[in-house]
Lab assay of single mutants.
Amino acid sequence: MLDDRARMEAAKKEKVEQILAEFQLQEEDLKKVMRRMQKEMDRGLRLETHEEASVKMLPTYVRSTPEGSEVGDFLSLDLGGTNFRVMLVKVGEGEEGQWSVKTKHQMYSIPEDAMTGTAEMLFDYISECISDFLDKHQMKHKKLPLGFTFSFPVRHEDIDKGILLNWTKGFKASGAEGNNVVGLLRDAIKRRGDFEMDVVAMVNDTVATMISCYYEDHQCEVGMIVGTGCNACYMEEMQNVELVEGDEGRMCVNTEWGAFGDSGELDEFLLEYDRLVDESSANPGQQLYEKLIGGKYMGELVRLVLLRLVDENLLFHGEASEQLRTRGAFETRFVSQVESDTGDRKQIYNILSTLGLRPSTTDCDIVRRACESVSTRAAHMCSAGLAGVINRMRESRSEDVMRITVGVDGSVYKLHPSFKERFHASVRRLTPSCEITFIESEEGSGRGAALVSAVACKKACMLGQ
């Protein structure tokens, strides 16, 4: 009897593995994704193909990295998701002549009506938060230079001027797309009239992360975010950046690689679950690469896999709870928690219980395998993109072996128990001629924006502006 049951459990697990095998990517698959990513990057950089390229390769006008001589107080704003952060950054000489960066910050959550109302409502709310922060720190009387981390696709015309191309991540505030974001912020500050600010720089969160990590390690020339969304930036040779005049030196390019796949480059790798996630998203047909990796989508992918296993009578005796059938019910943090389970399955059992399920031991094991399959594919897909960037940098610099540091931020990278190990191992397999160091950014977005502002202020002083 026991043997029969054991055989049935083994057969069930084997069927589960057959279904989950769809998520496995072979090294040849990853090399294919990497080569296609490089081709799209090239198209994004070139003037004649930029418009139709899915990977936009947006110039950021960040050319210099901090040298350690900029000092002063800077205000930093960070808008990239449902939370908005205001930070005071003091850049100065530390002990023994070292450079020191001290920060104080406060988080504000953005109400739904500000995210989806008008641009005026959104930026009025942001300036209200700045006003509140300055009151708390008794700094209303000071006109501070301000660095703005704005983590949406922007076409820069200068370091302090950028046109919002399109909202992502659930934002829909009308009247912002096609307009200068810094102008919208300046107008809102003017409307309030109770404080003055000098907006000197606007950067993407990947750029802010790279600059913040450069402060720790001067070989950091790539910034990457794996959180709600997924994106990367890197220092490109100016001669390859056709959208900006000049051939000397390097400029940081914001790849906006989340949109890779929007022209069909990933079609052969998309599964039924991916198509369902895409169809029910706020932007169907867009940001397809990001939807395979980002935390906004990972939990939902797992939920759809679990429903398939229920329908195949391989999980929960073929019956799903009402909660499990509800879109968004299986949160991405559950994926991390399930994979963090120590082996007694308590954590998995508790999560499934909150979803109205009474799982068996085998159910718990199957749910864990589903989570591992989805998150491992995410790590491997992400590795193909980064390997594409790094191999490109090595080739354009004609280096036999390139040493490089990548600064990384984002909740999936930082909080998932195995993502970074799987990701690092896969990147290294795909970049055999590179020695890569990964560092995690601390308060990256805010500190990085302030350091970019410090560079901009120093330049302005040198130019006598």
Score class of each variant (00 low, 15 high):
R327H: 13
T326I: 10
K414P: 10
L451K: 10
S321Y: 13
T60A: 01
V101R: 03
I211Y: 00
E331G: 13
K143F: 02
H137D: 08
G72C: 00
A232R: 00
I19S: 15
G444M: 15
S54H: 04
M107T: 07
M121L: 13
V71L: 11
L430S: 07
F195Y: 03
G448L: 09
V91P: 03
I159R: 12
E112S: 05
C230G: 02
I348T: 07
W257Y: 05
S445V: 12
F195Q: 02
T149W: 12
H416Q: 10
K291N: 14
E48I: 15
R5V: 08
A460M: 11
G178W: 05
T209I: 06
L430T: 02
L75M: 02
R36K: 05
S321H: 14
G183K: 05
F133S: 04
I126Y: 15
R358D: 05
D278A: 06
M8G: 12
C457G: 12
Q38G: 02
H317G: 15
V452G: 09
F84R: 00
E120D: 10
E248T: 06
H424Q: 11
M235C: 00
V367C: 05
K420V: 12
S418E: 10
E300R: 02
G162K: 12
V401G: 09
W167G: 14
Q138L: 11
L58T: 08
I404F: 02
L20E: 11
L184V: 11
P145V: 02
A6C: 12
G448E: 11
A387D: 00
S280R: 09
L185K: 00
S174M: 06
Y125F: 07
I348D: 04
W257L: 10
L2C: 02
G299M: 01
R377K: 01
D198T: 01
F330Y: 06
G147V: 01
A460I: 05
L58E: 06
E93I: 11
G94H: 02
S353D: 08
L352E: 02
M107Q: 11
Q286P: 08
R155Q: 13
G294Y: 09
Q18S: 14
E300D: 02
Q323K: 09
A370F: 02
G175Y: 04
L47N: 04
L88S: 08
V55Y: 05
G249L: 01
V335P: 02
I159C: 10
K12T: 07
D247E: 02
S54N: 10
T228E: 05
I293F: 14
H424N: 04
S281A: 07
P432Y: 08
G448Y: 11
G162P: 08
L355F: 05
L301G: 05
N204Y: 02
L304A: 06
L355M: 03
D217F: 04
S353F: 03
V16E: 15
D132R: 09
G170P: 14
N83D: 09
D42V: 09
G328P: 07
N83C: 10
K90I: 06
E51N: 11
K15S: 15
S375A: 06
D278V: 06
K31F: 08
M393V: 13
L306G: 03
H50L: 03
S453E: 14
V89L: 05
A378I: 09
N313Y: 06
L88H: 03
K102H: 03
Q38Y: 03
I130K: 03
G92E: 06
V203Q: 00
L270G: 04
E236A: 02
G294D: 15
M381T: 03
G193R: 08
R275T: 15
H380C: 08
D132Q: 14
A282G: 09
T206I: 02
G385C: 06
V89F: 09
Q286G: 10
D205S: 07
R394A: 14
Q38H: 03
S398Y: 11
Q347I: 10
T60D: 00
Q323R: 07
R428E: 12
M121G: 10
D344G: 02
C233G: 01
F423L: 13
E435T: 07
E339M: 01
L415F: 06
G295K: 14
V181I: 10
Y349N: 02
M210S: 01
S360I: 05
T82N: 10
V91D: 04
D409N: 10
Y215E: 00
E96Q: 12
L45N: 12
L185I: 03
S263Q: 03
Y289W: 15
M381D: 00
Q18I: 11
C129H: 12
L30M: 04
V62N: 06
G94Q: 13
D113A: 07
F260P: 00
M115G: 12
C457D: 12
W167I: 13
Q337A: 07
Y273G: 06
A188L: 01
G44R: 07
A173D: 04
G72F: 00
V222P: 00
T342K: 01
K39I: 14
L122V: 08
G183M: 10
S336D: 08
Q337G: 06
T103M: 03
T228I: 03
D247R: 02
F74W: 03
S373R: 07
S340H: 07
V277K: 10
K296V: 13
D363H: 00
V241M: 01
I19C: 09
V33C: 06
K172I: 05
Q98M: 09
G147L: 02
A384M: 09
Q138C: 11
R155E: 12
A173F: 09
V86H: 01
R7M: 15
G318K: 01
G385A: 12
M251I: 15
S174N: 04
I189T: 01
V33T: 03
S396I: 14
E245L: 03
Q286L: 14
D400P: 01
E242N: 01
S174W: 06
E95C: 09
S453L: 14
L134T: 08
T149G: 13
